[in-house]
């Protein structure tokens, strides 16, 4: 491991100027639970780490009428210990509470999870199904990217050299809506998802009919996947086992997994089906206020 520079900017503009000056030789450092492991393991080489934990905008967590503004460097534990956030976004808490381990959750952030752009990033599917938007600042100013478009390949994202993810904007939950995330791992902690699924639904006032749904998948393709056909198939349907089974089948079809040490193609297609059905059932119960 080579010596590298560490910069702790106190403003967003300072961070952007350091990142811009160093191009792809610089990366922001939030919790460091991925990037430090990558640097130590020789899987990434950098000249500069830019600490995101010293930039105010990246460390704020704010609930407004328009929803949640989540600073990119806010660690998971601050998210699930925030009562307002936990009550409004249980699907996000599902993910924040199972990333890595308790110790990892003390450092790891959802913004970092997005920027690391691993296909298995646990918090990305719920951010997608919740309609999250990535707010990016860079040498050319601000831009926003829908969460489902943020990752472009394993370890790759839309971030250009010099750009930094400042925060994630998640809309306020609408009435009768619910979201859930489940992943499958062979152990009960400290593992990478073999497959992960987040489902969100909006029910009508009676709680019997699904008005709209979004389903997003992890670990079954080069990026997290928004399974549009699976979600759309539920719109206007009764919240029935048949409709849920059809959505599971369509979600499974949307997966493009590989066989590796963590699982096989067949196993992953099957798990997407199982997890889609399970998360839809949880999301529906949450939408009805049953849990």
């Amino acid at each position: 491991m080579r010596a590298i520079d560490y910069v702790a900017p106190t403003s967003l503009s300072e961070a952007v100027s350091v990142l811009s000056a160093n191009g792809d030789r610089a990366r922001p450092l939030a919790g460091g639970t991925d990037i430090i492991v990558q640097l130590r393991g020789g899987r990434r080489e950098l000249d500069v780490l830019v600490d995101a934990k010293t930039i105010p905008e990246l460390n704020q967590i704010e609930m407004t009428d328009s929803g949640l503004r989540l600073g990119a460097a806010v660690p998971c534990y601050e998210i699930y210990q925030n009562q307002q956030v936990a009550a409004a976004y249980p699907g996000l808490i599902d993910a924040a509470g199972l990333i890595g381990s308790i110790q990892i959750q003390g450092r790891a952030s959802i913004g970092g999870n997005l920027c690391n752009a691993a296909p298995s990033g646990d918090s990305i599917p719920p951010v997608i199904t919740l309609g999250g938007e990535a707010h990016i600042n860079g040498p050319n100013g601000w831009r926003a990217v829908a969460a489902e478009n943020f990752c472009t390949g394993p370890g790759r994202s839309v971030l250009e050299p010099g750009e930094i993810l400042v925060g994630i904007q998640i809309p306020a939950p609408v009435a009768n809506s619910g979201t859930a995330y489940l992943r499958f791992i062979p152990r009960n902690e400290m593992d990478i998802a073999v497959a992960g699924v987040s489902s969100s639904v909006v029910l009508d006032a009676s709680g019997q009919t699904i008005q709209s749904a979004r389903i997003a998948l992890a670990s079954v393709g080069p990026t997290p996947i928004l399974a549009t056909a699976a979600g759309d198939s539920l719109a206007g349907k009764a919240a029935s086992d048949d409709a849920i089974a059809e959505a599971g089948r369509l979600a499974s079809e949307a997966a493009t997994p590989i066989t590796d040490m963590r699982g096989t193609i067949r196993q992953r297609h099957h798990l997407v089906d199982v997890l889609t059905r399970r998360t839809l059932n949880i999301a529906i119960r949450r939408a009805r206020g049953e849990e």
């Binding site: 062979p186 152990r187 009960n188 902690e189 400290m190 593992d191 990478i192 590796d260 040490m261 963590r262």
Partner: peptide, 15 residues
């Protein structure tokens, strides 16, 4: 392919 404690899955206390 799995020469780390992440992917060489020994049981943890939660298992």
């Amino acid at each position: 392919m799995n020469s780390s404690f992440l992917d060489y899955r020994m049981p943890t206390s939660l298992d």
